[in-house]
Design a protein around this nucleic acid. Structure first.
Lengths: 305, 305
DNA sequence: CTCCTCAATACCCTACAGGTATCATCGAGA
DNA sequence: TCTCGATGATACCTGTAGGGTATTGAGGAG
């Protein structure tokens, strides 16, 4: 079996299809914007390479042989596939096609993240977004190992190889059980929190939201009474319902509607009484999909402002 | 959308796949038996044509981008398809793959033709043989219109544009009803036929088997009594069973077993007491499948001899 | 027999794939 | 900190092959 396709290239196929369709080398040459003799030569060369007679030459023009008919189908397929491949590669290069692996934290995917993902999905419907629940430390590890391209978290600090982009900033509310003494007040002074046991979250890599809360208390001159540390906001609110005490949560946690738990605003709060939600990604990641995603993040943040 | 694939050819794909697999331009170049700089240039040119960054250059080598990964799959597909297309075209060019349209006569496909078709099918299993039942005149018309590539018939005469190849030659037998007077003899003298009505076939384009029989009778000095003309041997034998008289048939018609009908050999026969089965095809038909078929016919005929 | 329409051939020219030599960059060790 | 080694990129040259023009050859149609 002669391996004859070494020197066959797409030009040959393009020319071949044109000749097969026009059944006339002169017309085909005109259609291809070349002159007749080189086209004749290319067809001869193709037949030579394949070792197959593709056309029978008649006084009226070129007529496909049976082998030619078969090869015509294949040639059209190949050309269509090439067309499709370039188009898909281009779309992928523009970040319009592909896959984005995203790290998210805890079981609490609250407010901003779903909205953001929805906005991204609308703008880039052919990018498959895959969510991975992982802690902050796992996100950083996964980013470095390229298992994810972007992670969402709070209290992120820039690193040498990882960059941060803020998504949104939120105030804090107090989750209390409706029969808790503090629940009687429509607004609670921040300093009052020192007299009540608190549930804190999340466990795991520091600094995290825990440190934010402890820092805020320190700014107000006290140390919180920690009744329990839990993994995420949802668990925290569940413990509040169970009577473990109060719990400071970001605004968006109000989407966690729990029977017997109310959310109360705070007054006399220290400065910086808010917490950021940011995303983190590799500085050297040139992926157009990540660029598109970060662009969507920027637009989202601007819309919020 | 930039239509950028105009100058992309299979060489680009081959080079791209090599680099993607080696993740190193130098090694890929060695594998391709070219030097490193042209390979670098070809990859750059491919990226330029597509408008897509396919690799991220690292100090350790070339790493596929997401778009590159996607394009790699497509490139492999395309290359496999090209491989397959050339191979199929080559097989078609050798007559090993394709379709052969064959014209056969009457409802009587007897002995030689099934054997021949079976032999051809065994030698060329990927050639689809399509049978078309048609008269001699229809076969000639269909050959000229390229609707069939070869026809089978008896009493064929060469034409300007059509060639003949003999398949086999057969003797003649007499089909008689078992209660017919002639059936009593184990062998019948040819001249006796003048006293008995005969069924003749086929109707349609002349000269045909009818003329053969009439000619044989003339050679023996008489004119046959024609009781009925019918379309084909099977019908003829059926009429013999129905009492319409006797019927001269080729040897192979004995495969038509009819209750109450016997076949008897003849003695004192005139010269040329046999009939040929031939096939007819276009002289200018260069199809390798036809060539393969005619070759099979030749082998069959030689085996018979 | 002549003209007309095809494809095929002869010959030239230029563009570009491929070669050699060299440079730029970035890590890894000494 | 500096050098060395590996990698890809660049500069420049050369030969081949793809494309152009002019012409020939070969069948049909009138």
């Amino acid at each position: 079996m002669t391996r004859g396709n070494r020197n066959v290239d797409l030009r040959h196929l393009r020319y071949f299809v044109a000749v097969a369709e026009e059944e006339n080398i002169g017309r085909a040459a005109a259609r291809l914007h070349i002159s007749q003799p080189p086209l004749t030569r290319q067809i001869q060369q193709l037949e030579e390479e394949l070792g197959v007679t593709l056309f029978t030459r008649t006084p009226r023009g070129m007529e496909l042989t049976q082998a030619g008919e078969l090869f015509l189908e294949e040639a059209r397929n190949i050309r269509a596939l090439v067309e499709q491949a370039t188009e898909r590669a281009q779309r992928a290069g523009q970040g319009k096609l592909g896959r984005l692996d995203v790290g998210i934290f805890g079981s609490a995917i609250l407010d901003a993240i779903p909205k953001l993902l929805l906005a991204f999905r609308n703008r880039y419907p052919d990018v498959k977004v895959v969510l991975h629940t992982m802690t902050k430390a796992e996100q950083i590890e996964a980013l470095r190992q390229r298992r994810i391209s972007v992670g969402f978290n709070r209290m992120l600090a820039p690193l040498a190889d990882l960059a941060i982009k803020q998504v949104t900033t939120e105030g804090l509310l107090l989750a209390v059980r409706v029969d808790h003494p503090l629940a009687a007040q429509p607004t609670i002074r921040f300093a009052e929190l020192q007299h009540h046991p608190m549930v804190l979250f999340p466990t795991g890599a520091r600094p995290s939201f825990i440190d934010k809360v402890i820092g805020l208390c320190a700014d107000s001159g006290f140390q919180p009474q920690i009744s329990q540390e839990v993994g995420d906001a949802a668990t925290g609110v569940a413990l509040v319902a169970g009577g473990f005490g109060v719990c400071l949560v970001p605004d968006s946690a109000t989407t966690l509607q729990f029977p017997g738990v109310a959310y109360r605003p705070l007054s006399d709060t220290p400065p910086n009484f808010h917490v950021d939600l940011s995303c983190i990604y590799r500085k050297d990641d040139q992926s157009p999909i990540l660029a598109a995603f970060l662009d969507t993040v920027g637009r989202y943040r601007d819309d919020q402002a």
